[in-house]
């Protein structure tokens, strides 16, 4: 554990909490892509199956359980509790275009050809593209509420901090995780355009039409 890794995890947690609290307090999930949130729940589910097989640390276990619980709570709020406010007409990104290549890639490139390892790889690849339905929705409607942009900022920052963590670990431990690093860099690149708009235009984002 180093400062970049800890800051990355905190940033990830903050992002998820911002989104959950926004939906809970406004009793609305307008402007939020339910499809992206389902993909994130799938990411956590397939990655954290090792909760049942190996014990790493109390921190590791607690964080995994928290991320799983919060991601399912978010999906529940969008599709059940506040489904009247769900903007399904603009949440139309075809997720099969993400899932099919990601499933294929996880079978081709993995650390071991076992169910758990393939699912772990699937989750890493899927995480890198899971935000695309949300970004697509913002492009389609041409706007995002400021609180939604804060969510995206912290979510992007999390993987960017993980990159710093990987650089740090490579230099201090000589350790690197090729699949996670490549996917993490790809994931962060998707946020660059958003980061630019966030910084230059301020919180509320309107895409040029």
């Amino acid at each position: 554990m180093n400062i970049f890794r800890l800051a990355g995890d905190v940033s990830h947690l903050v992002a998820i909490l911002i989104l959950l609290m926004k939906i809970w307090r406004s009793k609305s999930c307008a402007g939020i892509s339910g499809r992206s949130q389902v993909l994130f729940a799938l990411v956590f589910t397939t990655r954290y199956l090792d909760l049942f097989t190996v014990y790493i640390s109390a921190y590791n276990t607690v964080m995994k359980v928290v991320f799983l619980a919060l991601s399912y709570a978010t999906v529940y709020l969008i599709y059940m509790r506040f489904r009247n406010s769900y903007d399904s007409e603009n949440d139309t990104f075809r997720v099969e275009f993400l899932l099919i290549p990601v499933i294929g890639l996880s079978f081709l490139e993995n650390y071991a050809f076992t169910p758990l390892e393939i699912l772990w790889t699937f989750s890493i690849f899927l995480e890198s593209v899971a935000i695309m339905p949300q970004l697509f929705m913002i492009t389609k409607t041409g706007e995002a509420e400021s609180i939604t942009t804060h969510y995206l900022f912290f979510l992007g920052l999390y993987r960017a901090l993980y990159i710093a963590n990987w650089v740090w670990r490579y230099h201090t431990e000589g350790f690197y995780d090729q699949i996670a690093i490549v996917s993490g860099v790809v994931q962060t690149i998707f946020y660059c355009d958003f980061f630019y708009l966030y910084v230059t235009r301020g919180e509320e984002i309107r895409t040029p039409s």
Binding site: H12, S57, K64, Y111, W120, N165, F175, Y176, D177
Partner: peptide, 10 residues
């Protein structure tokens, strides 16, 4: 290239 999976990262 050496390939290792990180087990402790989230």
């Amino acid at each position: 290239a050496k390939k290792t999976k990180s087990k402790d990262e989230l």
